[in-house]
Simulated assay, not measured.
Amino acid sequence: MPRTVVRGIRSFPLEAPVVRFLVVPQWQGSPATRAMLLVDGATAIAGDLPRAATTVLDVPVEAGESLGTGVRRLSSLLRTRELVAEAMTADTVVIGGDCSVTAAALAALPGGTDDLAVVWCDAHADMNTPESSPSGAFSGMALRAVLGEGEPQLALSPGVPRDRVITVGMRNLDDEEVAQVDGLTSLSVSDLDSADAVADAVAATGARRVWVHIDVDVLDPAELSGVSEAAPFGLTTSALSTAIRRLRDRVPLAGATISGFAPRTPADAVDDLGALLRLVGAVA
């Protein structure tokens, strides 16, 4: 039996293969007034990851400038994007930070995105552009950037086609976003009553690999409290982790993101780590 190292409440086999974890404590894409709590959230998760397989990026601490665009803090976002590109490898689980770190990860994904489907688990649509965004925060534009639209310096080129994007648990949309979700496959919270719903949707795209993006606000607030903008009637940790495991049985995972954890106190972080590490286990 392989020896194990225990950190916090999860143990990792030392001799078992493990994916690489890339911790990106970016806060500049968030619209929240206490956005820097995302740095604390990323740090808390990193403390329970295997050290030998974990890289923590030294992202900018300053807010940054918009550089004449409609994206707040763009200069810092671009610097973090460069750091992610330098560090990105295959089979990486990215730990945010705000949810826009996925756009940077996919832009640097080894092998590109031509054969990729994206499963976007998020309570919010993230489908604004600089012109439609009420906040100017890039996290609210992140999925639109994955599609190759919005601010050219941040959007994927080429973007992932709409028919290869599956949203999960989306329930809070700005008025300008409602029409923009056309062409995406949308799975509601109740759709995940079927454990195979996500796997079936991805298989139907014909994609050979899949990236799973999880903003933890997709979970019900009763499951996890450490988010900037809680949305009621969300997923259970069990339903989401089971769906991801079923997906991985059928389609190879190119990588994943877990983002949006913003605990208000260290005690809150400890309370939420059980749910978070179940999600880490599902993607890793």
Rank of each mutant, 00 (worst) to 15 (best):
T4A: 06
T4L: 02
R7M: 10
I9N: 11
L14E: 14
L14D: 09
E15R: 10
A16M: 11
R20K: 13
F21C: 08
V23D: 08
P25S: 14
G29H: 08
P31L: 15
V39F: 10
I45Y: 04
G47W: 00
G47Y: 00
L49R: 04
T54L: 06
T54I: 08
V56R: 04
L57V: 11
E62H: 15
A63F: 07
T69C: 14
S75K: 13
T80I: 03
R81Q: 15
V84T: 06
A87I: 06
M88V: 06
V93R: 02
V94F: 03
I95S: 06
G96F: 04
G96K: 08
V101N: 05
V101W: 01
A107I: 02
L116S: 10
A117F: 01
V118S: 06
H124M: 03
A125C: 10
P130R: 13
S132K: 06
G136V: 11
F138H: 15
G140T: 03
A142F: 02
L143Y: 03
L147N: 01
L154C: 15
L156D: 04
L156F: 04
L156Q: 02
S157D: 15
D163A: 13
M170W: 02
M170L: 14
L173T: 09
D174T: 05
E177A: 13
E177G: 13
T185H: 14
S190Y: 14
D191C: 12
L192A: 13
D196L: 14
A203I: 06
A203W: 04
T205D: 05
A207E: 05
W211K: 01
W211V: 07
V212P: 02
H213T: 11
D217G: 11
G234T: 01
L235S: 02
S238N: 05
S238H: 05
L240V: 00
S241D: 04
I244T: 08
L247M: 05
A254T: 10
G255S: 04
T257G: 15
I258M: 05
T265L: 13
P266A: 10
D268E: 15
D271T: 12
D271C: 11
D272S: 12
D272G: 10
G274H: 10
R278E: 15
R278W: 06
A282I: 03
